[in-house]
Amino acid sequence: MTMTNLFTIILLLAGCFFFLGGTLGLLRFPDLFSRLHALTKVDNIGLGLIAAGMAIHIGSPWAALKIFLIWLSTLLASSTACYLVAKFQLGRPSESPEVPAK
């Protein structure tokens, strides 16, 4: 019992850490592409860890399956949205002013 609790706590903390990192990246990165990178990759890991922690905490296989499906659909949606935003930015006529000039 305490073992599962410990696992849950560790997973949730790790998930929160990744979320924090992703948000930091969103706020601090200079241009749209690296912001997208931070937002989609790091946040998906964070969400996955939190979902895993909750699944362990609930301890029922059906609930775990539902949580896993939720995570999967979020992955799909966020990567599609990321792709669309990036593609829009690339296709913009105004020479993409937000691409870093180095």
């Binding site: 949606a77 599609t80 792709y83 593609k87």
Partner: peptide, 15 residues
Amino acid sequence: VDPLLRQVILLFTPV
């Protein structure tokens, strides 16, 4: 419409 978007939408509709 972007073909990838169409595919994802097709996938999501029944879900």
